[in-house]
């Protein structure tokens, strides 16, 4: 091993050396001792930095939305009434259902019921498809009704919030599909735990973000 180390100061980078160096697995031992914590962090700590950050960004946009609303409540209320609330409700229920199915899928995956987990994840993906389809209908209805992101503050925030959220739904669906694939391969839980829990947590975040958006943009604005 020192043989490769001696060559570090020469021209060749390690990955071009003859089989030694980088691939040396004797340094596989992680030098960071596992911290003993009370309780189990779903997936891993780093993911929660990301999730909390993602939630914070959305929260900031929503709070700025509410701030802007204060200077023009009448127009906001009138604009909010242009939204098709039933679609919003169905979308909320669809995402809640998908989140439920994902939670059940994680439980199934954990005990090795791969087939059941696969079906549940597929169900969640189906709910996501319903959400996206209804969103498309909603967007085209708004736009053909003359309401675009340029039609004032309310619709600017409506399209940006729901658009950014839709991006998350799409990314989440891709992640769910990836989880599906690992389920198909029947990999043992220990190897896929971080991934599965991570994808599930991300999807729940997508769900809870929509709950907040629905409440503030569809309901409170129109009250």
């Amino acid at each position: 091993m020192t043989h490769a180390r001696d060559r570090m100061d020469l021209d060749l980078p390690d990955f071009l050396s003859d089989g030694e160096g980088i691939d040396d697995l004797s340094r596989t031992q992680s030098r960071r001792p596992a911290k003993v914590v009370d309780g189990h962090i779903p997936s891993e700590l780093g993911l929660w930095i990301f999730i909390l950050w993602d939630m914070t960004l959305f929260a900031l946009i929503m709070l700025v939305f509410l701030w802007e609303r204060r200077s023009d409540r009448a127009t906001f209320t009138e604009s909010a009434h242009q939204l098709i609330q039933p679609i919003g409700v169905v979308n909320t229920l669809a995402l809640l259902l998908s989140s439920y199915l994902v939670a059940r899928a994680l439980l199934a995956h954990r005990v090795g019921r791969h087939l059941q987990a696969r079906r549940l994840v597929l169900g969640a993906i189906g709910c996501a498809a319903v959400f996206a389809g209804l969103k498309a209908i909603e967007y085209s209805s708004e736009i053909s009704g003359g309401h675009t992101p340029a039609s004032g503050m309310f619709f600017r925030f409506y399209f940006i919030l729901t658009g950014l959220h839709l991006l998350h739904v799409i990314i989440g669906t891709v992640l769910l599909t990836a989880w599906q694939v690992t389920l198909q391969r029947r990999r043992p839980w220990a190897g896929t735990q971080k991934l599965a829990e991570g994808i599930a947590s991300y999807w729940h975040m997508v769900d809870l973000l929509w709950v907040a958006i629905f409440a503030l943009v569809y309901l409170v604005s129109a009250e």
Partner: peptide, 12 residues
Amino acid sequence: KRQTLPRWVAYV
């Protein structure tokens, strides 16, 4: 696999 850098850096 060798965790050269802490994993949370990836999420940042």
